[in-house]
Every structure is written in structure tokens, then in C-alpha cells.
Design a protein around this nucleic acid. Structure first.
Lengths: 233, 233
DNA sequence: CCATTGTTTATTGCCTACAATAGCAATCGT
DNA sequence: ACGATTGCTATTGTAGGCAATAAACAATGG
């Protein structure tokens, strides 16, 4: 009975005023998927998960439908819903679309760039240089992520932000997930500087191209490691 | 009881073997929304719609969750789900993202283009010229749509296709829907020829830019009519 | 007359129960 | 022995019912 205290610990009742149980479950499932606790190909058992969340199957089913529409999960009738497994081919497709969207970010930013923004970007670059020098790669990713997040958000185009993040998430479901990260490891900060320089120039097309190429190079690195490991499709 | 013959007329039971009731409802709702039978801002009454489809509220709720994730509908807790109304501002955002994706299509096609493809594209161009000459504008849209659909599909990038169509659909929910179409009416076929010529040249960047600009010009036309009509936000 | 506070009603949120299906194992016939 | 068939079990698909909320209206007090 849902009028009792739900068993969930972190969600105050206040939260449920605005966001429905379904929404909470959806975010929770998304988290489980993206952290890898639920692995690609794994089935989401309705009863098991709903009891885990302390709810009935209804909200859980609604949550999985939403995840399905967002491409994180796929459903086979009468068999269940499974965490999606993104094939290398699809990963390559996603890289291209992501490049296009990120390129748009560059194009838009070229018209919006301010000294303050450039200062902040250069700060990110310095931080990444420092961390790279100290070979502390675990510290590199958070900054790298923040750098890209800032760029995308600063466009002021919410649709763009949403799309970009959706694709980044989807790449986490790539069968060769390790390769995605491994490829990123070798990114030299020079690519990032090229992007910031392009922004500073205020040249739309140049910025778009620099941003686009940055993602395309990630794609190429991904494909290389893919070939090296002899993975197909 | 769902083991009886459902009241839905067009869907054979065979269809339900593969796609769930939820999926059928979702497609049906999507149709109602895109044809305008359900207008932006309108509430989707669960009881009314579920009885209309001859099902219970469960599958209907799952269908609307999916539509919500896809951005066609928005849900307010304890108040219901409403057909989304896309603000002019968001429409402009969408135009940009769509331009980026369409630009990618151009870039990819530049590497894939064949004589056969060019012939087909030129055929489309001729058809549109003819129709435009005869001022039969109702005939113009289907060809225009097919032209763009073909371009996007020919990239072979399914992710791109899906995204592109999603955004086209969303633009149908723009508050100033009429303006979207009105703006398109004045598209001269010259823009289309520029795109095809760029493809023929095999120059990636040029093709990307031509495709990108085509959508951007639609955006500008949309904004002009917007300003003329004194619409805000 | 207006604001505030019950009260009613339509509708959503969630849950439980039952029907149907898929996968598997045991059984049966050949 | 072996394939097809038939139950069995776990799990999903759907239905319908009760609780809770919000919006509209009525009643009350200032």
C-alpha cells in the first residue's frame, strides 16, 4: 500500500510530491545500468526489482517503458526487458551523431564566447595538463567530463545538452565499453586547446570543425582498439 | 478481459504476438498527436482513451510514459499527461540540432555518393520544379519529404535517421505550427540543388555546410514569420 | 462583497489478482 | 533410444479496485 512509508531510504516524501514513484524508479534503474550493476544483456526481473524498491510492478513497468524509449533497455514480449547492448557498429554510428551535436556546440559557442568563458576553459586545460603530467589518470576523467559538460551547457541550448548527454550515456552500453575509455586515455590535451583556440577566434565554421573532429578522433581511436581486439559487427 | 477479441479494429491478433498492446496504443496515440486530433496542451484522459482503445489503463499509462520519454507528451503528477506544446524558443533550438544532424547526413553522403544516387536526387529536384511551376503546393510537400527522407536514410546511419525524424516530429508540436509550414513554402529549389551539387563534388565539409545551411535557412524563415506575427518566447 | 474554508467530484497513482505465455522437464508413443 | 507432446513453473501482460490528490464549487465568516 503506497500510502505507507515507502521502504526507500533516500527519497523523502517531499520528493514524491513533485516526482512520481515511476520517476524515482527510472532514475534508480538508470543509475544501476550506467554504473554497470545491471550489465548489458541482463534481464530486469520485474518482481525482483519491484520488491527491491518496495513498490508494485506497475510503476516499475512504466519506468522500464521510459528507459526503453530512451534506448537504454529493450523489451521482448512475454520474455522481459533487457539492458541494451550497443554493438560496435551502433557505437560508431553514435560517435558520428555525437560529433555533429558537439560540433554544433562549437559553432554556437563561437558566437557567445566571452573572456570569462575563455578563462574558465583555460583553467580546465591547465588542470588537465597538471593531472596528465602527474600520470594520475583517475583524476583526469572528472575534469575532462566537466570540461565537456561546461562547453555543451554554455551553449544555452537545452535540447542540445539533453541529446549530447543521452548519447554519452548510450556509449556506456557499448559491448566494448572498456575500449571507449581506453581510447579516451590517449587524448592529448592538444585537441582540447585546438577547440578553445578555435572558440577564441570567433570563427563559427572553424570552431564547429574543431569540435566535430575532436569526437571523430575518439571514434577513430575506438575503432582502432576494436580492430586490435578482433571484435566484429 | 484481454483474452477476448479486442475492440480495436485494425490490429489483428497476429500483430499482438510480436508487439505488445502498449506498443499498439503508443503508435495510435502518436498518430493522433501528429495529425493534430490531439492538440498541444490537450489532456490525455486515461479512462476515456483506454475505453476508446478497449483496454485497461495499465497499457495506456505505459504508452504515455514512452511518449513522455520521447518528448511528445508531458506529465504533471496528479494532474495528468498533456500533449506537449513546443515553444518558439524550443523550436529554434530544435532547428539548430536538426541542422547539425542533417549536416552530418551531408558529410556522410559525400563519401557514399554514387551516380545512381545522384540520378535519383536529380529526379526529385525535377519533380519539385515541375510542381512548383504548376503552383500545386499540396503536391510539393510529399516530394520534399521524400527527398529529405531519402537523403537521411541513404547515410545508412540508423541512429541518425531516428534522431532526425524525432526532431521533425517535435517541430509539429510547435505552437506556431502553421508558421513552420508557411516558412517552408518559400523554399526555392535552388537550396536543394546546392545540396546535391555539394554531394556531387564529394567534398565532405562543403556538403555538410550546404545541408546545415539549408535547415538554418528554414529556421530563419520560421523566425521571421514569428517576429511578423509578434509571437514571443 | 470578498476571502477563506469545507465539500464534492473527476481523475490520477498505486496495488493486488488473475490470465497467458515461454522455457523446461517429465512423459508418452513409436 | 528418440522425437513429439504434455504438464509444470516462473514470469510477464492485463484488468480492475481502492486511496489520494486537485480543481471546482458551496458554505461560512469577516
Amino acid at each position: 500500500m503506497y500510502h505507507q512509508e515507502p521502504k526507500v531510504q533516500l527519497n523523502d516524501l517531499a520528493v514524491l510530491r513533485t516526482s512520481s514513484l515511476t520517476g524515482v524508479i527510472e532514475r534508480e534503474l538508470e543509475h544501476l545500468i550506467l554504473t554497470g550493476e545491471l550489465k548489458p544483456g541482463e534481464r530486469l526481473n520485474e518482481i525482483q526489482l519491484s520488491t527491491r524498491f518496495g513498490t508494485s510492478r506497475g510503476p516499475l513497468r512504466e519506468a522500464t517503458r521510459s528507459l526503453q524509449a530512451r534506448g537504454l533497455v529493450e523489451s521482448i514480449r512475454n520474455r522481459g526487458v533487457f539492458v541494451r547492448s550497443v554493438s560496435p557498429t551502433e557505437a560508431l554510428e553514435i560517435y558520428d551523431v555525437r560529433a555533429a551535436i558537439f560540433g554544433l556546440a562549437g559553432r554556437l559557442l563561437a558566437d557567445l564566447v566571452t573572456d570569462q568563458m575563455l578563462a574558465r576553459l583555460n583553467d580546465y586545460l591547465d588542470q588537465m595538463d597538471n593531472v596528465a603530467a602527474s600520470k594520475n589518470f583517475d583524476d583526469y576523467y572528472p575534469i575532462n567530463l566537466a570540461f565537456h559538460d561546461y562547453l555543451v551547457t554554455a551553449t544555452g541550448n537545452g535540447t542540445l545538452v539533453k541529446e549530447y548527454k543521452a548519447f554519452v550515456n548510450k556509449l556506456h552500453l557499448a559491448r566494448a565499453r572498456g575500449l571507449v575509455q581506453a581510447g579516451g586515455l590517449s587524448v592529448s590535451n592538444r585537441e582540447h586547446r585546438e577547440m578553445v583556440d578555435a572558440l577564441a577566434s570567433g570563427n563559427r565554421e572553424r570552431a564547429q570543425e574543431a569540435f566535430f573532429r575532436h569526437v571523430e578522433r575518439s571514434k577513430i581511436r575506438f575503432r582502432s582498439t576494436l580492430d586490435a581486439d578482433g571484435l566484429q559487427s
